[in-house]
Design a protein around this nucleic acid. Structure first.
Length: 477
RNA sequence: CGGGGUGUAGCGCAGUUCGGCAGCGCACCGCGUUUGGGACGCGGGGGUCGGCGGUUCGAGUCCGCCCGCCCCGACCA
């Protein structure tokens, strides 16, 4: 560790983030500009995210499969809006096996096209529907400005692709998956999110409508943390996904796609992290509790380690790490594990051996207030309860922060002001002109029209025309 | 791609003004003392000074060209 302290979030949020990712051992820069290496600790976090999502996907009838990385260039061109949206950021393979390829291959930026092609082969009858497939994989988008986890040339994600017989079913699926993302974010990651619909300017290239979960980061900027798209019949028509219905009539299928990426790790970092470093939600933390033995003499070490073994034995149902390093002091270890975001630290020292206790230190409450002494018995229940408490308090704190920084500006001048350090929740007439004006003058974009609306109507915050829907304006990552 | 900055040990930097043995802090290795909030002492290893070319007895330092990276802008999960 070259410097001991991180920059504070207040003095430099961007730098705080960069250093935290590196020093918490989540990821490192790869030799290719814009690419990252996800290190074992970061990947363990991702694996826990994967597991939490995958359970939910399976529970709603989805199955996993794998589609290829390389896509014929012509596929991208079949859906007009899709190709326009993605062309600027494609990586193209033009040479293979030393020969210039007859048709260049695209490194997938997303897989709607190749999956659409396959679905057209697989789907013949209404009996084949719905098709509910997900894949875990990586994609490449040639981004200009990159940032670890938030925006890299290559990133890891899951993309679900489904096909349905009716528009209604497709819409249901789109919202079902949006809700799964929201449920995961709130309950497993303690990241409060707003579920809503994207404006047409912000929607996925080729979608009929896009939905998002938006989270507020510690600097009040918004982060799109997961998306679900109703693709209508756009891709079905482009790829000829047709089936015979009960009346023996040929119909185009209705498709959806939905994804959540390693970007969500960025959401966790920027939602919960503090000036000491990372703060991980217990349900996703690779290490839920770290045990730090404390001793001076060999005799103390023997009795402490014996107590540590007893403590550890009670906690086999948790992800536990015993920090047995001899070359660093306990004080160093405290700071080290705080930097890495471990939710609970359990200290075992000579005084604990004597008194039959251990010391708990909660990561979400730094310093003395977060410490408590508990008996060495019934530790499983006590740890479970403490982790649950931390899980809930992280969510509550983040939710309060979002509410404190979400404003209801009275007029356009007030909107310009509030979006510099918060979200604005305002009536909007839905016109691209008003949306663009806000973007040009404040750098804030429409994040979503939340599914939960107050109802009624009000004047558009920009042009004053009567409107029936409220939207979130915010500066976003 | 436009604007700005920067390249010297793994990281952070000094040395460049005015050419003359390539250094400091952290990290790393060894030994010893330490250990309930980022320990200390002693000893050690590690360098195409971003690259190529030029000027010079001599270039990290001066000149030219090239390259990388970072920050700020337009696009995105």
């Amino acid at each position: 560790m070259s410097e001991e302290k991180l920059p504070t979030r207040k003095e430099n949020f961007a730098e705080w983030y960069n250093q935290l990712v590196l020093r918490a051992d989540l990821a490192d820069y790869a030799p290719v500009r814009g690419c990252m290496v996800v290190k074992p600790y970061g990947w363990a976090l991702w694996e826990n995210i994967q597991q939490a999502l995958d359970h939910r996907f399976k529970a709603t009838g989805h199955v996993n499969a794998a589609f290829p990385l390389l896509i014929p260039q012509s596929f991208l061109e079949k859906e007009k809006e899709h190709v326009e949206g993605f062309s600027p950021e494609l990586a193209v393979v033009t040479i293979g096996g030393g020969e210039v390829l007859e048709e260049p291959l695209i490194v997938r930026p997303t897989s709607e096209t190749i999956i659409g092609y396959m679905y057209s082969k697989w789907i013949k009858s209404y009996r084949d529907l719905p098709v509910l497939i997900n894949q875990w994989g990586n994609v490449v988008r040639w981004e200009m400005r990159t940032k670890l986890f938030l925006r890299t040339l290559e990133f890891y994600w899951q993309e679900g692709h489904t096909a349905h017989a009716t528009a209604e079913e497709a819409q249901e699926e789109t919202l079902r998956m949006l809700n799964i993302y929201a449920d995961f974010a709130i309950n497993d990651a303690s990241v409060p999110v707003v579920a809503g619909r994207k404006s047409s300017a912000e929607k996925f290239a080729g979608a009929a409508s896009s939905y998002t979960i938006e989270a507020m980061m510690g600097d009040t900027r918004a982060l799109q943390s997961g998306t679900s798209h109703n693709l209508g019949q756009n891709f079905a028509k482009a790829f000829n996904i047709q089936y015979l219905d009960q009346n023996n009539e040929l119909q185009y299928a209705w498709t959806t796609s939905w994804g959540m990426s390693t970007r969500f790790i960025g959401a966790i970092i920027m939602t919960h992290g503090d000036d000491q470093g990372l703060v991980l939600p217990p349900r996703l933390a690779p290490i839920q509790a770290v045990i730090v033995p404390i001793y001076k003499t060999e005799a103390e070490k023997a009795s402490v380690m014996e107590a540590v073994e007893r403590v550890k034995a009670q906690l086999i149902n948790f992800r536990i790490k015993v920090d047995e390093r001899e070359e660093v002091t306990p004080g160093f270890k405290f700071n080290d594990w705080e930097l890495r975001g471990v939710p609970l630290r359990i200290e075992v020292g000579p005084k604990d051996v004597e008194k039959g206790t251990v010391a708990f230190a909660r990561r979400d409450i730094p310093g003395r207030e977060g410490k408590s002494f508990v008996p060495q018995t019934q530790l499983e229940a006590q740890v479970a309860e403490m982790l649950q408490t931390i899980q809930a308090s992280l969510h509550e704190r983040a939710r309060n922060f979002r509410m404190e920084n979400t404003h209801n500006p009275a007029d356009y001048a007030a909107l310009q002001e509030v979006v510099q350090a918060g979200w604005a929740f305002s009536w909007w007439c839905g016109s691209p002109e008003c949306e663009t004006k806000v973007k040009d003058e404040t750098k804030a974009t429409t994040r979503c029209m939340p599914l939960e609306q107050p109802g009624g109507e009000g004047p558009c915050i920009v042009c004053g025309k009567p409107s029936t829907e409220k939207v979130i304006f915010a500066r976003a990552y």
